[in-house]
Every structure is written in structure tokens, then in C-alpha cells.
């Protein structure tokens, strides 16, 4: 029963949504409004999941004094302080909460991703090898697209941006369209599997 009832709910709601998509009747619209209002009221609680999971991981490390537990303390203190500052002093521009976001969260998350530039440069030197004819074609297409995107490409030859555009509009487009159709059909199949109760991983483990 612990699995059956939730699966029934998905099935019933799912098929009501299929009907809603095709039938613009008032009952259908009312059903949608009802669902929307409830979905809104459910949504804020999802954040609790994140906090609990983070608290469990780092709380355990701190209480057990696991190796490097001090860093976990940094995470927990940062979480508590940031959240508290938002509740105490508000969230407007100029508050400690916004200061933390702008000068701690923003620069670090941006820098985290920028590290990838170094890794891709290193991979370009060490890993991108023309081992086969297919790999060579891939590398040549990549080089033309790379040059086609920067002003320098046009200065080398006016053909480079043209060829780059052609690659994107013709062979790339054909490839991505075929993949998109495949993915689209896959999405439809997965959605149907969820609606019919065949795909159940989203329910989590247990009975």
C-alpha cells in the first residue's frame, strides 16, 4: 500500500493532465487551478530536504570528529549565519545577507566553474588526439567553429566564419535534430512509463 497509493495518485493526476492538455473545458481549467494552488503550498518544504541532508552529512562528521571535521564546521556555521542574517536584517541591498551573497557566494561559484577552462586547455594538449579518421573530423570541425566565433577568425580568412556557420547550420543541425527526435521519443516513453507505474525509481527505496 505504501507504494500503490502514490502510484495511483500519479496515474490519476497524470491522465487528468493529458485530458487537460486537449480539453479546454471549465472543469479542466478548475482542476488545473486547484493543482496549481496546492503545488504552490507544497513547494517551499522541498528546501527542508536540502538542509536536512546537509545537516546529516556535516553534523555526523562534526560529532564524530572525523578527519577534517573543522571544514564541516565552516559549512554549518556559514549556513546558520547566512540564514540568520537574512531573517534578522532582511534581504535588501546593503544587508549582511546580500553582502555574503555578492562577495562570498557569487565569486566562489563563478570561480569554481572557471577552473574548467584550465582543465580543457590541459585536455586539449594531452587528450584530444586524432587517433582515427572520425576523431580527426571532430577536431577539424571544432577548430573551425572555435576560429569562427572570434574576430581573429575573420581576419585570417573571411571563409572561416562562413564555413563555421555552414557546419552549425547543416551537418551539426542534422545531427542535433536526429538526436533531439530520439531524446524526444525517449522523454515521451519515460513519461508514459511513470504514468503507467512502470518507472518507479522516483519513489525511492523501501517497500
Amino acid at each position: 500500500m505504501k507504494r500503490q497509493i502514490p502510484l495511483m495518485i500519479v496515474m490519476i493526476l497524470g491522465f487528468l493532465f493529458v485530458i487537460h492538455t486537449f480539453v479546454p473545458h471549465k472543469i479542466s481549467a478548475d482542476f488545473y487551478d486547484w493543482w496549481q494552488e496546492w503545488a504552490k503550498a507544497i513547494s517551499p518544504f522541498a528546501v527542508v530536504l536540502g538542509v536536512i541532508s546537509l545537516g546529516m552529512v556535516h553534523g555526523t562528521k562534526i560529532s564524530r570528529k572525523a578527519p577534517n571535521w573543522q571544514y564541516s564546521l565552516v559549512t554549518v556555521l556559514a549556513l546558520v549565519f547566512t540564514a540568520a542574517s537574512g531573517f534578522i536584517w532582511g534581504r535588501q541591498e546593503g544587508t549582511p545577507y546580500m553582502w555574503l551573497f555578492k562577495n562570498v557566494q557569487m565569486p566562489m561559484s563563478a570561480t569554481m566553474f572557471s577552473l574548467l577552462a584550465f582543465y580543457i586547455a590541459s585536455a586539449a594538449y594531452k587528450a584530444f588526439r586524432a587517433r582515427s579518421a572520425e576523431a580527426t573530423v571532430l577536431l577539424i570541425a571544432a577548430i573551425i567553429v572555435m576560429l569562427g566565433q572570434v574576430p581573429l577568425g575573420m581576419q585570417i580568412s573571411r571563409w572561416i566564419p562562413d564555413i563555421s556557420t555552414w557546419i552549425l547550420n547543416v551537418p551539426n543541425m542534422a545531427a542535433k535534430r536526429a538526436i533531439m527526435i530520439g531524446v524526444g521519443l525517449g522523454m515521451v516513453a519515460t513519461s508514459l512509463k511513470i504514468l503507467l507505474g512502470i518507472e518507479r525509481t522516483y519513489l525511492g527505496g523501501g517497500d
Partner: peptide, 14 residues
């Protein structure tokens, strides 16, 4: 890294 995780989550709550 740890500061980032804490601040990001703490930011979302209020």
C-alpha cells in the same frame, strides 16, 4: 569550498 556550500544553502532559506 565548504564556505560556499554553507552560504549557498543558508542563502536559500530566508
Amino acid at each position: 569550498e565548504h564556505l560556499l556550500v554553507g552560504v549557498s544553502m543558508g542563502y536559500a532559506i530566508p
